[in-house]
Design a protein around this nucleic acid. Structure first.
Lengths: 216, 216
DNA sequence: TAGATTGTTAATCGATTAACAATC
DNA sequence: TAGATTGTTAATCGATTAACAATC
């Protein structure tokens, strides 16, 4: 990696997408790709692809292109996907259970360690072989087991309080599914998902398309 | 609404967030808010708030500010949240079931009508009182019941095929949770969620924070 | 070497912010 | 009316695209 200037968030947000496409190419047995071919596939300009990648280093080779597997590994390393992350899920409701049941994340190194709940009926049971523990024990558990990420699947009413406790316990990142914006100290990373926001902008586009159809 | 020039996607993506904050304010009994007060709360500049809103019309009043409830209703109308949307979920796996069990969307007018599956063991059962139907019957069902949105909760391998069938059947929008980018005709709206992309950029920020902590 | 394609600088475009006149 | 705050134009900033020299 070269000199780390400030890399814009727009670039970071594109990296997982690059990685996804490279993985598919690798699976199909493609060894090398030029920024131009990649552009046609992924839908960003060739210029942007080269610009983005050169924020992190010169991964290509002039006159040849980029090694698919090589670039895949570089991007994985940049994102930090060459290590494991221990996660705890906060809340054993529908969403919490759905995430606990998802084995997809496990493949990229995100392991659900435990689920935390306040409902005594759920404490002690297992969901997809993952133990549901008492919310009261959170801080101690996170510290002792070096948990990296807290996944908030609670109601919006308690989400901030739960986030505070997670930060106090020492998690490094929060993946928030509650429909509020969590405020946390700057040394903790946060990703607010806001599923319904996406649904609402989808609604906007549906109605715009229908208006356009009428006009024609 | 005033002359509809081209409104950038960045603006549209902010609307649901404005709406969320306005809803909270209304709940707290706040009647009016100035762009400055709103700025402090929501974290956008006052200038941006006024600029964004004026894409759609002059909702404020000089010397006074914006009516919280009035603006909430305006934004809801712009997004198209003053009507109902019928959705079908494609795939009765973990994610499909989780979405079926979520009553949250229902409140803003997004109603899950049915779930479609290929697995004969699941066809005919009910999940949260929603019937699981045969994928074979999709096209006919969507046409007859005027379904608006298809929610893709399948594997990435079949997602495009399912999307094609949904489009053929005449849905107006697709909410895609499969980790591929769906290609559809431009008259159909699409929202690709890509949950794991968010998790991957979270990993990036976690590692950046830890590097910074070391430097200090 | 000639051809291809990157890495990088320069130009353009679009989105955000600042300023201020209009007006409640 | 005076004060406040919007609506809107102008200035700035940052991100994307174009161009081309470097180099494999």
């Amino acid at each position: 990696m070269k000199k780390q200037v400030k890399i814009s968030n727009a670039v970071i947000k594109r990296l997982p997408r690059y990685r996804r496409y490279l993985k598919e190419l690798h699976k199909k047995g493609v060894d090398k790709i030029s920024s131009n071919e990649f552009s046609r596939l992924i839908g960003y300009t060739a210029s942007q692809i080269r610009q983005d990648l050169n924020n992190f280093g010169g991964f290509g080779q002039q006159g040849y292109g980029y090694s698919v597997d090589g670039l895949y590994k570089e991007i994985s390393a940049i994102l930090g996907l060459d290590r494991k992350y221990k996660m705890v899920i906060m809340g054993a409701g529908n969403l919490g259970q759905a995430i606990a049941n998802h084995t997809y994340y496990y493949k990229t190194g995100f392991v659900v360690d435990s689920i935390f709940e306040v409902n005594p009926r759920l404490i002690g049971i297992k969901i997809n072989d993952i133990e549901v523990r008492d919310y009261e024990d959170l801080v101690e558990y996170v510290e002792e087991n070096e948990i990296d990420i807290g996944v908030i699947c609670t109601t919006k009413e308690v989400a901030q309080e739960v986030a505070d406790k997670l930060c106090f316990a020492g998690v490094k990142g929060i993946w928030n599914f509650a429909p509020v914006d969590i405020e946390i100290p700057s040394h903790v990373a946060v990703e607010n998902v806001h599923l319904s926001d996406g649904l609402h902008s989808l609604a906007y586009h549906i109605n715009r398309n229908q208006e356009e159809a009428k006009t024609k």
